[in-house]
């Protein structure tokens, strides 16, 4: 494991911490897209199907369990917690799941490395992760007064995949035969989706003003 991969994972982990912190500290999930959270949970469930059958390292197994556990915990807070669930922006969070899930499922059926159920479902999770942030970005654009923790959460999520790109470049040059077209292209698409957000996030940080996305 190289430093970029580790940094990427830690930033990813931190994004969960920031999100749970925001929801718990403010007892509110205002500005957070339940749809994106549900899509991420689906991503992790599909990707970590091999959790108990394919052991890579203690680190990997632990992180997978933490990501799954945290995702379900966030879903519980947003859907089941009686104080928090009423703060959910149901009317604003209107992105349709099918517009993302269906094309990703079709693409996974068409483009994959091996025609096995496990591999196709895993590939679907890679495609879906790339676009799962879209409902959140749409909601952010509609939300006036984005709070700092929500802005930081989205920034960390974007940064995580950016660091993975550096990890893939590193691995390409250090590991023989390390070619991962599906993951690389999806990861680049995923990072590109954040570029507009990064621009406004960094601008607001430099000018020391509250983050606001132009609508």
């Amino acid at each position: 494991m190289n430093i970029f991969r580790l940094a990427g994972d830690m930033v990813h982990l931190l994004s969960f911490v920031v999100l749970v912190l925001k929801i718990n500290a403010t007892k509110s999930c205002r500005g957070i897209s339940l749809k994106t959270q549900e899509l991420y949970t689906l991503v992790f469930v599909c990707r970590y199907l091999d959790l108990f059958s394919n052991f890579i390292s203690m680190y990997n197994t632990t992180m997978k369990i933490v990501f799954l556990g945290t995702s379900f915990a966030i879903l519980y807070l947003m859907r089941g917690h009686k104080v928090i669930k009423v703060t959910y922006d149901r009317e604003q969070d209107t992105f349709r799941y099918l517009f993302l899930v269906l094309p990703c499922a079709l693409l996974a059926l068409l483009i994959h490395n091996a025609w096995t159920p496990f591999e196709v479902v895993w590939t679907f999770s890679i495609y879906l992760e790339a676009v799962a942030i879209l409902p959140q970005l749409v909601l952010l654009q509609r939300t006036q007064n984005i709070d700092n923790l929500t802005g930081n959460y989205v920034f960390l999520l974007g940064l995580y995949r950016g660091l993975y790109i550096l990890n893939w470049i590193y691995r390409y040059f250090t590991e023989p035969h390390y070619i991962q077209w599906i993951v690389w292209i999806s990861g680049i698409v995923q990072t590109i989706l954040y570029l507009d957000f990064f621009y406004y996030y960094i601008k607001s940080w430099k000018n020391n003003v509250k983050l606001a996305l132009p609508s």
Partner: peptide, 10 residues
């Protein structure tokens, strides 16, 4: 080998 399939990443 796991690194050949990319399944060693999260």
């Amino acid at each position: 080998k796991s690194s050949a399939t990319g399944h060693d990443e999260l």
